[in-house]
Each structure stands twice: as structure tokens, then as C-alpha cells.
């Protein structure tokens, strides 16, 4: 499973199987993410991809979509 699929799977599990969204969709705009889930996402990315999310990384744009998170992980692991 590639990074994108892993991220999608985690979010899908959290929001429920019946909710559909694409890798490009803004999950904040769709109302899929509350503030606690946002922190869960941060911890998930850190644990799954061995990165450390720092204060200055907490730009919401890094977390808006599966694609953005995938880019963010790629940048952090480059």
C-alpha cells in the first residue's frame, strides 16, 4: 500500500465507510475533520511515516486533503 492509500484508509476508517471523498477533496471544507481528529491525523502521520510534525508545519494547507498530506510527508522525508 502506498502512502496515499494509507492516509486515505486511515481517514476513511475514522469518518465511516459510507462517506465518500477523493484524494483531492478538502476534508476540512467537507466537514469531515473536527479539531480532535486533526490532532489524531498529526499523530497518525508521525507514527506511520516516521516524521516529526513541528510547530511551523501546522499550516492547515498541509492537511487539507489526502494529496496535500502525501506531499507534506514526501517533503518531510526527502
Amino acid at each position: 500500500m502506498n502512502n496515499q492509500d494509507q492516509i486515505k484508509e486511515f481517514i476513511q476508517k475514522k469518518v465511516g465507510e459510507k462517506v465518500s471523498f477523493s484524494n483531492a477533496d478538502d476534508i476540512f471544507k467537507l466537514g469531515l475533520v473536527n479539531s480532535l481528529f486533526a490532532l489524531e491525523l498529526v499523530v497518525f502521520l508521525e507514527n506511520s511515516f516516521g516524521i516529526q510534525v513541528e510547530n511551523e508545519d501546522l499550516d492547515l494547507n498541509n492537511f487539507r486533503s489526502v494529496d496535500n498530506m502525501n506531499d507534506f510527508v514526501a517533503k518531510k522525508t526527502a
Binding site: 480532535l36 486533526a38 490532532l39 510547530n55 501546522l58
Partner: peptide, 17 residues
């Protein structure tokens, strides 16, 4: 303390947890 505009999502949620 924390990113501007993230005082609830980032700092307060972490602190309360």
C-alpha cells in the same frame, strides 16, 4: 504560543488532553 490561529486545535486540545 503555537501557530497563529491554531490556539484551539493545536494548543488547547493538546493541553486539555
Amino acid at each position: 504560543f503555537g501557530m497563529k490561529g491554531m490556539g484551539f486545535i493545536q494548543i488547547t486540545n493538546t493541553a486539555l488532553d
